[in-house]
Nucleic acid binder design. Structure first.
Lengths: 150, 150
DNA sequence: TAAGATTGATTGTTCAATCTTA
DNA sequence: TAAGATTGAACAATCAATCTTA
């Protein structure tokens, strides 16, 4: 084996991790455009959606699910709360812990946003077809399972 | 059809775009850990790799390939240049344009980093198997093609 | 005009450290 | 002790605007 072997320019950026990155960046950018009229960033939309799907979680738990830090969640939540989309309540049994919940307006904004972002999901599904979309989710699920434990 | 239909908590975060996002975040985090000993951020690694694969491109072109702005490339390049990993040269025919190139040290650092990140790629390939890895790349390629044109 | 580079202001995020509570 | 929340400093990236060059 040649110790001097160079990085193959043709192959380096075609490995699965890089392709995964490029695909996510493009889809994320499309979501961002669809959220612009609603006035939400993708991060804000992500937090609203996670609160909707996992009601009653605290900031640290939401951060772990979303792949960001507790501080980022607190900052996001602060703005969403100031805009009246989110509520923070003291946890009934732990005075130091906060539970998150959507306000009525937060629900409505999320639903509007969901409709817009749904267009991006639909476009993805249309490009792949239902069968390959399911296959992609399955394969990515394996990736998630593998890398969920560092 | 029920107009009041709510966002399905069970399905919303399972659509392909969300799964894609979570998978990318996890793989990216794994890459970040593998780059820590080398002293590179994933963004810096990405720039070095792109300069290696596409030598002679200018900042704007690299930014488009990497999915970031020209300014972000300039900031990254400034630091890599200060660390002696990257060179910026005036374009031979356009005085206002800069070409990027790796220094000898940049080459070496990139190769070390490539070996470390290769472990992450290998782990991904091991989790999926060669056949499904190829299938994943293929499916993501379709996604990239679809969303490359906004 | 058009494309690239650069600068300044703003936002979003992380890291590090501290405080609170069970 | 451990887990969550909060604060302040540092960093990264964006947007907006300006400058340069062909």
């Amino acid at each position: 084996v040649d110790e001097q072997e160079k990085i193959s320019a043709a192959e380096a950026l075609d490995r699965a991790g890089w392709v995964l990155r490029r695909a996510d960046l493009l889809v994320q950018a499309a979501k961002e455009r669809s959220l612009k009229p609603v006035g939400l960033s993708t991060a804000q939309y992500s937090l609203l959606m996670h609160v909707h799907v996992y009601p009653g979680l605290n900031g640290a738990e939401l951060g772990r699910l979303m792949g960001v830090t507790t501080q980022a969640v607190a900052l996001l939540a602060g703005k969403l709360q100031a805009n009246g989309l989110l509520e923070r309540r003291a946890h009934p049994r732990h005075r130091n812990i906060q539970e998150f919940a959507l306000t009525q307006e937060g629900q409505q904004v999320l639903e509007t946003a969901y409709t817009g972002v749904g267009g991006v999901e639909d476009r993805l599904r249309a490009a792949l077809g239902p069968k390959d979309t399911a296959r992609l989710r399955e394969l990515l699920g394996t990736v998630i399972a593998e890398f969920s434990t560092p």
